[in-house]
Structure formats: structure tokens, C-alpha cells
Design a binder for these strands. Structure first.
Lengths: 144, 144
DNA sequence: TATTGTTATACTCTATAACTATA
DNA sequence: TATAGTTATAGAGTATAACAATA
């Protein structure tokens, strides 16, 4: 598939990133569809699995989104019984989000599906170039 | 600048691309602010300068957006007298978009501002790594 | 008073449907 | 009938403001 976009756009970093971002999101969503979770939901699940129980506020901070946005994400995960909202005993204003057994399973399967989807998106690059792209993106973001 | 995002997110391609995309858009918009044009407007201007006069439909096709979206972009450029809508003599349904002298000037200045903004975003990478990142992104889009 | 989760609301971006004037 | 540009509208996504419970 030839991109077909004119040089003035292909030389623009925001355009390259935007297009590839869109393609990647679509591929990941398509892959996760069989688990009935979206990219955002699975990302939240992964953070909770990787970092342990935390409040909605804290989840939002780590994902870089507002706490009002977190409500909808957790609603979706809660409905599917992938996470539970437990009232924190220490501070009863906050919910301690905990991943259920089914949630752990979904997170693990999803991780594989996401990885497969990303490989399809990066079809035009060989293995070492894929690694290099990830490494460069991470370094550009500052964390490495 | 330490990213502060947890590993489960930093390993996700869509997350890396999404965050860097947002940072890049903001930087480009900030740079272009002194010319009073947005990224989308300047991108359209660049396509018109690079490819010559074309209809709004054609501009939309090349930019990968709907013709209804093009209306607003051209409105903004038209108001600032950077492009003109000329009724095509061959087919009077369509507008032949032509860049004004002021439009050419704005495009050229903007190109520099965009380049500077992108360098700031890619501050964490040296020159050859920046080139490599662009090359990999372009190849991922072109081949995949 | 300040904070957590929530809801209502608004804003941005983009697309679909429908209208007009041409073809 | 079909197409280019336009307008009205709707949808996704996210944020700000306000409220109840709790600190």
C-alpha cells in the first residue's frame, strides 16, 4: 500500500505521527474487539495489573487524563466485571480499583492481541527497525 | 524531561505515538501562532504551494480529510487572504484554490517555524536519530 | 475548606445527510 | 442523475463547573 500523500505532508512530523497513530489505534481496537474491550480500557487494565490497586484519581494521573474521563473507562471495566470499585477503608471518598481474576485474564490475552496488531501495523519494517522505532519514540518522549 | 508514565503504557505503540503526536501538534501550533495560522491551515497551504492550484475536493483527498472539513480550513485561509477561491471556468461547480502572494510568504515563514518547533520536540534526539525517526515513520506508513 | 467520585455541560474535531448550483 | 461546495447536524472524545459525601 503506497501512502499516496504529497511530500509537503510526509515531511511534517505531526502528520506522520498522526496518521500512524490512527492506523495503530484502529489495528489495536480491531485486535481487542474479540475481548470486547477498547484500547483505552485495556490500557487502564494494564496499568492496574502492572502497578497494583489505586484510586481513580491516581489512575488518571498515570494515564495523563482527567479524573472525569476515568469515570467512563472504569464504568466499562466495571460493567464487564474486569475491575471492582472498592471503597477505600483509609479514605472513604476514594475507590480502590482492583483487577478481578477475569480482568487479569483479559489483560494478558489483550497484551498478546495488541502486540500482534502492532506487528501488522509495522509490517513495512523488519524486526530491528521496529525496535529502533519504539526506542526512538520512547527517547523522544523523555523517559527513554 | 522525565516522562513519568508507567511501563505498561510506554510499551504500547499507540500510546507513544499519541503522546508524541500531541506534543508535536502543540509545538507546531505554538510556533505558527505568530503568523496567525493553525497547523491544519499551514499544511493545506503547503500542499497548494507544492502541488499547484486544485479544487477543494482534491485538496481533501490529498490531505485525507472529508470535503466538508476542507470548507472550514479554506474559510480560515480565505479570510486572511492567503488563498483565493476562484470559480473554475472548466467546471463552475468547483473552486480552484490559488495561493496569494501573502500566502506564499506565510507558507515559507511557517515552514521554518514548523521545522524549529519539531526540533524542539525532538530535543532528546541527536540529528541522525531525528532523521532516522522520520525515515522509519515514513517507511511504516508507505509500506504498511 | 479541600478532595474524590460523579453528573451535567461545553468544546473540539470530524463525518454523514441534505440543500444549491451546476453538469 | 451525478457532482462540488455548503450548511446543519450528530458523534466521539475530552475537559470545566458544580454537587454530594467525606476528610
Amino acid at each position: 500500500m503506497v501512502s499516496g500523500f504529497p511530500p509537503p505532508l510526509l515531511g511534517r512530523l505531526s502528520f506522520l505521527l498522526g496518521k500512524l497513530h490512527l492506523l495503530t489505534l484502529e489495528a489495536e481496537d480491531e485486535g481487542l474487539a474479540q475481548l470486547d474491550v477498547g484500547v483505552k480500557q485495556h490500557a487502564a487494565l494494564s496499568v492496574l495489573v502492572g502497578e497494583g490497586p489505586m484510586t481513580q484519581q491516581e489512575l488518571g494521573r498515570r494515564m495523563g487524563v482527567d479524573r472525569t474521563t476515568v469515570v467512563g473507562v472504569v464504568d466499562a471495566l466495571d460493567e464487564r466485571e474486569l475491575v471492582e470499585r472498592r471503597r477505600s477503608p483509609a479514605d472513604r471518598r476514594s475507590n480502590l480499583l482492583t483487577v478481578t481474576a477475569s480482568g487479569h485474564e483479559t489483560e494478558q490475552r489483550g497484551r498478546r492481541l495488541v502486540a500482534d496488531a502492532e506487528e501488522r501495523v509495522l509490517d513495512g519494517l523488519d524486526g530491528s527497525d521496529r525496535d529502533r522505532l519504539r526506542e526512538l519514540l520512547g527517547r523522544a518522549l523523555g523517559g527513554g
